[in-house]
C-alpha cells in the first residue's frame, strides 16, 4: 500500500522548508561527497585498489582501525561505569564531573592534540613518570591510543546515562527478593538492559576514532608504517597534488564510515525488537 510521496497538509511552508533543506543538503554535503565518488569512478576500481593495496596504506588503515577498536573498548567499559556513577550516586562534585564528560566534545581537536602531547612527551608531567619505568607514550602507538580514548570518551557515557535513569527500581527489588546477590542482579538484570545503548555508544566512538585527525597527529609522531594514521595519508597525497590517490584512500575511509553507520542502525533495530527502546 503506497501513499503519495508527500501527503497533503494544511501546514504552511512546505515549498520553502523543503527547498532550503534539499538545496543546502545538496550543496554542502551531497554534491561534495558525490564529487569524491565521481573522482573514484573516473579513477576506476582497479586504480583505487592499486592505490589502497600498498603496504603503507594498508598499515595505516589497519592501524587506525585497530587502535580505534581498542580505544572504543576501553571507552565502553569506562563509559558504562561513568554513567552508573553519575546517575546512581550522590557525591560532592558530581555536577562538575558530569559536565566534564562533555569536554572532549567541546574542546577543539588541535587544542586536545597539543595538550596531550605536552602531557605525555618525555618531558611532560605524565611522560616523565612513564619514562621512569621505561614506557614511552608520546610518538608511539600508545600516544595515538590515548588521544583516541580522549575523543571517544563521551559517547558511551552519554548514550547509557538516559537508559540507567529509566530503569525502574522495582526490577532490581524483584531480583533481590528472589534471592539474587547484588552482583548477580547487575550482571543478569541491569547490564543486559544497558547493552544496546552501550553498543551504540561503542560504535559511535569507534566511528569517530577511525576518522580522527586533529588530536592524533601531534602525539602520533607520524612515522610511516609505525604511527601513521589513515587520514594523514590523505593529507600527504593532497600536499603532493595527487588527487587520485587521495580520493582512493578517502573512498576507502568513506566505506568504513558507511559500514559503521549501518552497524549502528542494525544495533538500534535489534535492540528495539529485543526490549522496545534504545
Amino acid at each position: 500500500m503506497k501513499g503519495p510521496v508527500i501527503h497533503r497538509s494544511p501546514m504552511p511552508g512546505l515549498g520553502l522548508s523543503m527547498g532550503i533543506t534539499i538545496t543546502m543538503l545538496s550543496l554542502v554535503v551531497l554534491l561534495p561527497i558525490g564529487a569524491l565518488l565521481m573522482k573514484g569512478a573516473n579513477y576506476g576500481l582497479a586504480g583505487i585498489w592499486e592505490t589502497v593495496n600498498r603496504e603503507r596504506v594498508w598499515t595505516a588503515l589497519f592501524l587506525s582501525f585497530r587502535l580505534s577498536l581498542f580505544a572504543a573498548t576501553l571507552n565502553l567499559v569506562f563509559g558504562v561505569l561513568l554513567a552508573w556513577v553519575l546517575v546512581r550516586y550522590r557525591f560532592p562534585g558530581r555536577r562538575i564531573l558530569d559536565a566534564a564528560v562533555d569536554l572532549p566534545f567541546a574542546l577543539p581537536t588541535a587544542v586536545a592534540g597539543i595538550a596531550l602531547t605536552a602531557l605525555y612527551a618525555p618531558k611532560g608531567a605524565f611522560g616523565q613518570l612513564a619514562a621512569e619505568i621505561g614506557w614511552k607514550i608520546a610518538y608511539t602507538q600508545w600516544g595515538i591510543f590515548i588521544a583516541l580514548v580522549f575523543v571517544g570518551l563521551p559517547f558511551v557515557a552519554r548514550t547509557v546515562q538516559p537508559v540507567i535513569e529509566e530503569i525502574e527500581r522495582e526490577v532490581e527489588e524483584a531480583s533481590a527478593t528472589l534471592g539474587a546477590s547484588r552482583l548477580h542482579t547487575i550482571r543478569h538484570v541491569i547490564l543486559p538492559m544497558l547493552l544496546p545503548a552501550a553498543l551504540t555508544g561503542f560504535a559511535l566512538a569507534l566511528a569517530r576514532a577511525v576518522g580522527e585527525y586533529g588530536s592524533v597527529i601531534f602525539i602520533a609522531g607520524n612515522i610511516p608504517l609505525v604511527t601513521e594514521i589513515a587520514p594523514l595519508l590523505i593529507i600527504i597525497q593532497l600536499e603532493e597534488f595527487n588527487y587520485d590517490a587521495a580520493a582512493a584512500i578517502g573512498i576507502a575511509m568513506l566505506l568504513i564510515s558507511f559500514a559503521m553507520l549501518l552497524l549502528i542502525n542494525l544495533i538500534q533495530v535489534w535492540s528495539r525488537r529485543r526490549i522496545g527502546y534504545v
Binding site: P32, I33, A35, G211, Y213, P231, M253, S257, M260, L261
Partner: peptide
Amino acid sequence: TLIDLPFSVSPVVAGLCIVLM
C-alpha cells in the same frame, strides 16, 4: 540519515570532498 551523515565522515575526508568539488 543523510543529514546525520557528516557526523560519521572523517573531517579530513570532508575537506577532501570539498577540494574535489
